[in-house]
């Protein structure tokens, strides 16, 4: 793709973004259709909450894949969908938090849950770190914040690590899936460490 003329064509880019949006919407469409068909089993609240959390986590990982993909392929289309994927991740994370409060807690035991349950604290931290990122995701905020925008958005790294902790803490016996995601995150952070090192900078601290 790099260098070829069609890959930079506006229509191709539009189609690419639409396709990415469609893929990112799949978990939501899956949930809506299964809720409508009442096919989520006898404990749908639990099911919905888990699915939303996993979707948020997967999209966050996908978001972090875009910069390396751009560097390796040389094609800037990847960067054009990065913000959208990040906002999808935030969308699912928000629904996940609401689903947890509504379906699992029933809005009770809030204080105990958010102070005493370590994996909930981890999940909450991860979500809190995403909020400023979502709020400053517009072009306007990007311009206004200038260099500090980049600094601020490095919050995504601790957020994803804490999200992983949130998951692995819940695995009751089979950690295979989370080992896989953990390795993926490790690779995504390691390449950034390497780039930062090659520019003589301390990663995650300076832009």
């Amino acid at each position: 793709m790099p260098g070829s003329r069609w890959s930079g064509h506006p229509r191709f880019l539009l189609a690419f973004r639409l396709l990415a949006a469609l893929l990112a919407s799949m978990p939501f469409l899956f949930l809506v259709s299964n809720i409508a068909a009442q096919s989520l089993g006898p404990d749908p609240g639990q099911e919905v909450t888990e699915l939303l959390g996993l979707a948020a986590f997967q999209l966050l990982i996908a978001t972090l894949c875009m910069t390396p993909l751009k560097r390796w392929t040389g094609w800037s289309g990847w960067i054009r969908i990065r913000r959208m994927l990040g906002l999808f991740a935030f969308f699912y994370a928000t629904l996940h938090v609401l689903a947890f409060l509504q379906f699992i807690l029933g809005w009770t035991d809030l204080w105990v849950t958010f102070t005493k349950r370590p994996y909930i604290v981890a999940g909450a931290l991860s979500f809190l770190m995403l909020i400023p990122l979502a709020l400053t995701s517009t072009q306007g905020m990007m311009k206004r914040l200038g260099r500090s925008w980049k600094q601020l958005h490095k919050l995504v790294y601790p957020s994803i690590v804490v999200a992983w902790v949130h998951f692995i803490w819940q695995a009751r016996s089979d950690v295979g899936e989370m080992v896989f995601y953990g390795l993926a995150i490790l690779v995504l952070l390691a390449v950034r460490w390497k780039w930062a090192g090659s520019r003589g900078m301390i990663p995650f601290v300076r832009g």
Binding site: P42, G45, Q170
Partner: peptide, 19 residues
């Protein structure tokens, strides 16, 4: 349980809007 409360339970089948 250290990770969740045992005060209540969801009797299955449970509904989404009416747990």
């Amino acid at each position: 349980h250290p990770r969740w409360s045992q005060k209540r339970e969801r009797r299955l089948p449970s509904g989404l809007l009416s747990p």
